[in-house]
Design a protein around this nucleic acid. Structure first.
Lengths: 246, 246
DNA sequence: GTCTATAATGGGATAGAC
DNA sequence: GTCTATCCCATTATAGAC
């Protein structure tokens, strides 16, 4: 288990010192206000490495090296490893939740009743969008979220994730329940939970389906998957909901 | 993050020395053939701890302490931490796979065509059976399997899991495809993959549904879940299979 | 804010007596 | 097969100069 360092390209140090706002203040003393850059670089590196090797499998040394920063700076900016992990989760959570909520609001705009497919799509599409077009940072973040969803509950550093995302999930379940007024509330929860499980699995572990299907299915082809998964789970909901017409 | 040792009852040392075959050889020297017990106890402890804290989060020192054995014995019996992990997976794999295969054979006995529910049940019931009535060891093992299914692909120690379980999963997918001859093979794989995702999530993380549903759903109530999950996914398969009558 | 240096601890792994 | 003792290295975390 040789701890491989990730294939990160370290930016040359010269770039680090060339911030544009440094020029405006006309170099009195050496401009050392690199904090925003360093902080972000540490967060980026942590995000990438936590995904690749897990929380325990990643050391602050790995992170510092990948970020091109000093080990001590992780402690200066974040305090501890757990705090750093929390900061990684927190950084993009609000935007992500806002996008999910926005998508839900959009399909229910004007009090109209959406289709099951529309509600299911509203939950997966903002996420897929980020993976496909949000750049490497978002790609790592989403996968990290999916990974966290599968970690042992006992871990104390997992709490912040739940805080961010529980509320919006409830709103989706609410909307689903409105679509199937005759379905037991319990069953709506189960159905949506199964749906979340499929999504997090997909985002997390691109390899199992590919292998089991001999390449027929490709978990990395997210555009195809959005169609497949919404269709399948819509059928599941309609089947247990007893209504074929929505 | 205090590393709690599991609630294992240490067998008193007196019992350790009272193996029946020790008497047959009429105590020449001190009978030290405790290997089978020690080996199993290390495996048991490893199984429990890997589930609780993950691979990297568990040290061989933790395992040895929980097993009531010396640190060096883990190396003597298994070689390395990775090898120990593999041994944990291997120990119960054959029996587990045999039960899955047996359940599949049973619902297709005599060349008869099973229902979708029967095939889905054949995949989840042997597993649930072990969790409910297989004792603590099986309960830990199944959860460990579910956990492994969600770990980063890159980990080298995950290979043995795939080796054991891929074949039988293919057989289930085969049978499913036979039930839906008009469904694209690809879609059968997707459906079964979603199903596996829901199962592994359920076995892994008993807490998320409970929380999201305010206790309405309880992931620990596996008997209820077998009904819910097979019903939901059968509906999913029928919906995309275009056949309402099987 | 950044750096070097180091403390304090725990990790995987092995040698060798019994 | 079991045990003690130990090597060597990585880890989290902090102190203090600049």
């Amino acid at each position: 288990m040789s701890p491989e360092s990730p294939t990160e390209k370290k930016q040359p140090d010269t770039v680090t010192h060339s911030r544009s706002d440094g020029a405006t203040k006309a170099g009195k003393k050496t401009d050392r206000r690199k904090a925003p850059q360093t902080k972000e670089k540490i967060l980026d590196a942590a995000e990438a490495l936590f995904v690749q090797k897990g929380y325990y499998g990643t050391s602050l040394r790995d992170i510092s090296r990948a970020a091109g920063a000093q080990l001590a700076l992780s402690y200066y900016h974040f305090g501890s490893k757990e705090d750093l992990f929390r900061a990684v989760i927190d950084r993009r959570a609000d935007e992500n939740v806002a996008d999910l909520r926005g998508a839900l609001v959009r399909v229910t705009a004007g009090g109209k009743s959406p289709t099951v497919e529309e509600v299911l799509s509203a939950f997966i599409e903002p996420v897929v969008e980020k993976v496909l077009r949000g750049g490497e940072g978002w790609r790592n973040y989403i996968r990290l979220l999916a990974q966290v969803a599968h970690m042992p509950q006992e871990e104390s550093f997992l709490v912040p994730v739940n805080i961010h995302y529980d509320a919006v999930v409830r709103e989706f379940v609410e909307q689903m329940a409105r679509l199937f007024p005759d379905m037991a509330r319990e069953d709506v929860h189960w159905g949506f939970y199964f749906y979340q499980a499929a999504i997090t699995d997909l985002l997390n572990e691109p390899g199992m389906v590919d292998r089991q299907s001999d390449g027929l299915c490709r978990a990395s082809d997210l555009e195809t998957i959005v169609k497949k998964i919404t269709r399948f789970f819509a059928a599941g909901f309609r089947g247990i909901g007893g209504l074929q017409d929505r």
